[in-house]
Design a protein around this nucleic acid. Structure first.
Lengths: 228, 228
DNA sequence: CGTTGAATTGATTTAAGTCAATCGACGTGG
DNA sequence: CCACGTCGATTGACTTAAATCAATTCAACG
């Protein structure tokens, strides 16, 4: 429920690993660190809403955050999921300071909050910081476009297979057994699927050597997955 | 066919209207102008391919360019359409200098080419330029995310209706009659539809006061369109 | 005037959403 | 310790949106 907290050692580590901070010189890192507020939120708390004024952006310290758009009829579409070490909400800083999507805690989360006006000031003096922001936005842009392409080119089972392969690559260079980082319903949203469709995709992938128990995934034949 | 041309007065005007140049001071504008090469390309010419090394990005001076992803089976998905005054290919500059999508001339086009390494140098000295790049990428990011949301929340007729309303707003504050800026098949791709689906959507929208003859569109009841 | 590529229309297939029922895990309280 | 209730996941039956395939029609341009 939006408790304001002091920044601890573990948080510092996560923060320094972000694309925002990791490239910066120590003095600049410190300067930015001093502007940060840390807060914790419960699952389903709204972090910001589309159309409202944006005065800060965030880094995720722990948990997962969901960025989504609401349709007039009340249906929701996820645009991105952000986990530990990731930045979100930054792009409103360059779009007239209005959020264009909703952000919600998908589980209990800890966040670091960056004040946009302070960041703007620092950015004017420190080209390094602008570079970091450019890097973050380029990644986000690429992710979003990959998403469009994925939606338009691949079926549900293909999208799921791709995601599993990505995960297995991320988890130690092609680990054949790993854990889904979050709930299946959230994953469904991320992949643009109804939860039922994700479920069916999983059960279809069983025929290609994927076994799933709860959140644990085991891949016995990565090659088979690749050519779903 | 990639003719190299001298930059003329008309091109200069378009260039200065881009989000890249318009915010910059005249001296900086001039400095950048001096690095630019202008080229012309025929319809269907490939401008760059995904996976290849990126050494420059572009501004469109005239015509339209299509950014797309190719699937293994050879199907294509459009990720964005860029017209006069728009920038594309810039994001590869911050992603390891590799293009992640394909770009193709959708008709005959004139382009201004920006050398990435030169731009990087200038950017280091001129925070204004970094700001421009941040603005461009923020818009592109937002566009891409809007795209995802649109695809996931709206049916074909809704997407087409939205697009027409957008166009009518862009063309002189809600003009009820205007011209589609490019071919219908290209529009279909932009909206993530097969050309047949676009055609059907158009004919369905006739019932809501939209009349289409060739590329000319007339909207008689914008309100009806909004609540398709 | 004829040729070429784009757009439309119709028939069919397919992927995925929706609705509904059930199952399972987990945590709470009796 | 067990019964219950909640929430997420699964499964099945059905509906729907849109892709695909095929056949014309239409428009632009040489």
């Amino acid at each position: 429920m939006n408790k304001i907290l002091k920044i601890n050692h573990r948080d510092r580590e996560v923060l320094q690993s972000t694309a925002l901070m990791s490239g910066l010189n120590p003095a600049l890192q410190k300067r930015i660190m001093d502007t940060i507020a840390v807060s914790s939120h419960e699952s389903r708390d709204m972090l910001f809403r589309e159309g409202t004024e944006a005065d800060c952006f965030y880094a995720v310290l722990s948990g997962y955050v969901r960025l989504f758009r609401l349709s007039k009829e009340g249906r929701e579409a996820d645009i991105g999921i952000f986990g530990p070490g990731e930045i979100f909400g930054e792009c409103a800083m360059f779009l007239g300071s209005t959020y264009t999507f909703n952000a919600q805690a998908a589980e209990s989360v800890m966040l670091a909050r960056f004040d946009m006006s302070k960041m703007r000031l620092i950015m004017r003096e420190e080209p390094e910081l602008a570079m970091s922001m450019l890097n973050i936005m380029a990644r986000h842009l690429n992710d979003a476009r990959e998403n469009v392409a994925n939606d338009r080119l691949h079926t549900a089972p293909q999208r799921v297979a791709n995601y599993l392969l990505e995960l297995s690559r991320a988890n130690g260079n092609g680990a054949s057994t790993f854990r889904l980082p979050f709930q299946k319903s959230l994953l469904a949203g991320k992949l643009g699927l109804a939860p039922e469709a994700l479920s069916r995709a999983f059960s279809l992938l069983r025929n290609s050597g994927v076994s799933i128990r709860g959140r644990m995934v085991q891949i016995s034949d990565a090659e088979a997955l690749r050519k779903i």
